[in-house]
Computed example of a mutant assay.
Amino acid sequence: MLDEQLTTEALGVLLDAATDPDRGESGRSWRLEVNGHLLDVYVDGSHPLPTADPAARGLRIAAGVAVFDLRCAAASLSFDSWFSLCPYRHDPDLLARIVIEPTGLPDQELRQLYRAIRSRHLTRPPAGPDNAVQLALARAAELENTKLGWLSVSFAPLAVLSTDRDERSDQVAAGIALERILLTSIRHDVAATHLPQPIRRPELRRCAQELTGTSGFAQTLIRFGRAPAGDQL
């Protein structure tokens, strides 16, 4: 059954969820190959690497975001799914393989987060997360084998998303976790913004990780709530 092709309607739902219309086709860092119920997510090598991201770490994080959105969309179609990251050493552009199981039981939490995808462009209240929401966000990170470290800053709450290692698969996992965190934030009606630029340089990544007081590799920053005017990072 897994070698049967997904319907055009199902593929439309999957691609619509994984494609952010604000970025357009030119901003997509990944491409999708479909074979039956196998979804292979590749880094898109048709575009030159950004000057600010010569190691393509940001591209792999962005592809991980798409992987999570595809899982949520599959759950919305009542499909189960599982995945592996960077499964073949001889094919470094293959970042994730997702298996869609049409006879399985969908993950109900992913189904709920799919609804958040549909409302991700709505404006959220300016307040940051309370303690209960912070726990929910930390759990979202842990479910994808990452962690959130909160920083003490004068403006809106800021967190570092980090991984234990810094292999290609860890960077894709960081993107998966990032999207689970952002969608969890939406479910709790808290604004969240991905801020990769401040820690693109290796020394700034190390500094951000040190500020969390934990070991690991900082992958990106996330701001929750909205910073007052003049206090933007």
Rank of each mutant, 00 (worst) to 15 (best):
R124M: 15
R187L: 10
D80Q: 13
S185R: 05
P50W: 07
S26D: 10
S78D: 15
D69K: 07
L110V: 07
D22P: 00
T214C: 05
G24F: 12
K147A: 15
G175S: 12
R111N: 07
R118N: 07
A229W: 06
P48I: 07
Q5H: 14
L11S: 13
V153W: 10
V41G: 02
I100V: 14
T193C: 13
T146S: 13
A116P: 01
E167A: 14
A192F: 01
H90F: 12
E4K: 05
T214M: 03
N35K: 12
S185W: 03
R28T: 09
P102N: 02
P228H: 11
S154F: 07
V160E: 01
S162A: 15
W82D: 10
L2H: 14
G58C: 05
L14C: 10
R111D: 02
R97A: 03
E167P: 02
G64P: 07
H188P: 00
A229H: 13
A141T: 07
R71G: 07
T7E: 06
R111S: 08
S215D: 13
R206L: 10
R201V: 12
P126F: 09
S29P: 10
V160Y: 04
P157I: 06
L113K: 00
A63V: 08
L14T: 05
S84G: 14
L11N: 14
P198I: 09
R165Y: 11
F83W: 13
W150F: 13
P54I: 08
T212K: 04
D93R: 04
T103H: 01
A63S: 15
T146P: 01
G175W: 02
S169M: 09
P106H: 15
T51L: 11
M1P: 03
C86I: 01
L178P: 04
S215Y: 03
A63Q: 01
A52C: 11
D80K: 03
G45S: 15
R139Q: 14
R223I: 06
S46N: 12
V67L: 01
A74Y: 04
E109L: 09
V99L: 14
C72I: 01
R168K: 15
N35H: 10
A75R: 04
L85R: 02
A127W: 08
A63G: 09
V172F: 07
R200L: 15
T51W: 08
